[in-house]
Design a protein around this nucleic acid. Sequence first.
RNA 1: AGAGAGGUGGCCGAGUGGUCGAAGGCGCACGCCUGGAAAGUGUGUAUACACCAAAAGUGUAUCGAGGGUUCGAAUCCCUUCCUCUCUGCCA
Length: 423
Amino acid sequence: MILLQSLRDNTQDIVNALKKRNLDAAPLVENVLRLDEKRRAVQTQLDTILAQNNTLSKEIGMLFKAGKAQEANALKEKTGQLKEDSKKLGETLNSIKDQLQEALYQIPNVPHPSVPAGSSDTDNETVFEEGGIPKLDPNAIPHWELAKKYDIIDFELGVKITGAGFPVYKGKGARLQRALISYFLDKNTAAGYTEIQVPHLVNEASGYGTGQLPDKEGQMYHITADDLYLIPTAEVPVTNLLRDQILNEPDFPIRYTGYTPCFRREAGSYGAHVRGLNRLHQFDKVEIVRVEHPQNSYEALDAMVEHVKQILRELRLPYRILRLCGGDLGFVAALTYDFEVFSTAQDRWLEISSISNFENYQANRLKLRFTDKNGKKVLAHTLNGSALALPRVLAGILENYQTPEGIKIPEVLVPYCGFEIID
RNA sequence: AGAGAGGUGGCCGAGUGGUCGAAGGCGCACGCCUGGAAAGUGUGUAUACACCAAAAGUGUAUCGAGGGUUCGAAUCCCUUCCUCUCUGCCA
């Protein structure tokens, strides 16, 4: 959530910057500032009344001790009105606070100056492109057909036991999945990220911490019996490890990587582009998460981008990097780079990683702070990215590495797979 | 799931209606002591919000969370969440 203090201090700058999201934030911001002003006025009133009441109570206590019961009782009568007033004001204050909170939740993060203007994914800016697009056999086919041909992924079986979007990986397909997970984790730990295994279900507080709640309630699977949510990404449990923490400067940088399955309801997103592995309800992902000193967060973002580049180079997949435009930028992100792999067989780009700096937007909700050199408590910056999401990487490999003899396994994965070709 | 115990500051732990934001200890920071260190010793050591231009300062809230009783609640009552122990179940 956006920092109220900076909203107060830089109102106009923030409203202007949010225009990049094609959002006229002025009314939202005005509402927040109005509520904030109201809140402070009520707070001051309430504090005064409570202070009076406290003083009286102390006096009464002392009078009783001194045996002056009569005087004490006289004072007691004075407190009646104060009590009534404080109760009313307390209720008002709570209601204003709730409204303020809700109003703040509606304001998205302020885009970084480098975020291009634009309304949809067609306005995203390609900042880097690398890797040769392979020349495939004229009979090349998309991965869902390859999956069937070599019997490595069974979508129908998934439908039978669960439903659409829950594929079953078989034989070499399953082994390739496991290989990718291990390979990604190894790359990440070698780059300094600490491997971590987290629960796949989280409570409500964690959902709020990283911003999935309340905005994206409908996107998560909710276990109502125990009021827990299946994680849509490892970002949620991993980032929440640091919720309510006050760090020290030497603790930076904090770097975590974790593999988890991810569960997404993807309500309302069906269509031609969701075939096969392109969009699933359950998929595997290896995530990287960083918590940084505000001064270093953009350096960290660049490092994360470089790191993922390295992996795609090793896998020899043609990819490009996009800087998301204001219209495509996620609600809580200040700057996001998307990685896309080109699927030659589908003749389209597939998003396989999204790396974002949330600056202090997420940390504000998480109450994730550190003590700076002057002893002040300052919000940290949080970042995360996929390194990497499995299904589309798998799709890219299957499609780009297909030959008439079978699907070749990228060299770096052979030691992890134990075979060189799927045939 | 059933029965019981419990949740206090960075940690341990005292506190069963009044001056308690909370004893004591540990830890941490700074100083003294020392050739240096240890030991010893002194001081300090929560967070949020409000008032104030700001600092200083003052006020308010916070003893798992929410509500109640009371002039006054860490302490009493209710609700709820969580943890631990035993029983049950079980990879």
